[in-house]
């Protein structure tokens, strides 16, 4: 009984034979798992180890090393807000504060079902649109404090602060 859906199993298999070594497949496999589940759980790591021959220590090292992989449940919308140079200069801090206020209010209401999480992130490589954030895979530019409410509301309803 696999912990992966049929389609995910197929994806994993295809990655395993796509590169010069099986181990090279670890990063793409983890991305594929996160595309479906958002994060990587221990049962999944165990199955990668036992069924797919991807050593659990190798997998855990990779998960812990890279910023994108998560080994704990994640929220529906993961906000990664750039706190680096240009974004910092053009209003990141205020916007981050505002987002945190929203998250606090939402989590007070909804607990673990709160739709947003916030991670202050390194440079996202789109400084001409500063301040910039990612919401899951979507890049959002000019995410200044005065636009935060309207931006977030596109993803989930916001209670009044």
């Amino acid at each position: 009984m696999s912990v992966f859906s049929e389609s995910l199993q197929a994806k994993i298999q295809s990655f395993l034979t796509r590169y010069e070594t099986r181990r090279s497949a670890i990063l793409p496999v983890l991305h594929a798992i996160q595309d479906e589940h958002g994060w990587v759980s221990e049962p999944q790591i165990e199955e990668l180890h036992h069924t797919y021959g991807l050593d659990r220590v190798h997998v855990k090292e990779v998960i812990s090393f890279y910023d994108i992989y998560k080994d704990h449940p994640v929220r529906k919308y993961q906000i990664r807000y750039c706190k680096n140079l240009t974004c910092h200069m053009l209003g990141a801090r205020e916007a981050i504060c505002r987002i945190k206020e929203h998250i606090t209010a939402l989590d007070a209401q909804l607990g673990e079902d709160g739709p947003f999480s916030l991670e202050e992130f390194p440079c996202l490589g789109k400084c001409d649109g500063a301040p910039v954030m990612l919401v899951n895979k979507e890049r959002v530019e000019y995410a200044t404090v005065d636009r935060v409410d309207e931006i977030l509301a596109k993803y989930a309803p916001l209670p009044k602060l």
């Binding site: 050593d55 220590v57 190798h58 855990k60 090292e61 812990s64 090393f65």
Partner: peptide, 9 residues
């Protein structure tokens, strides 16, 4: 046996 790793950055 590869039981040890170094995790995090």
């Amino acid at each position: 046996t590869g039981a040890l790793g170094i995790f995090n950055r």
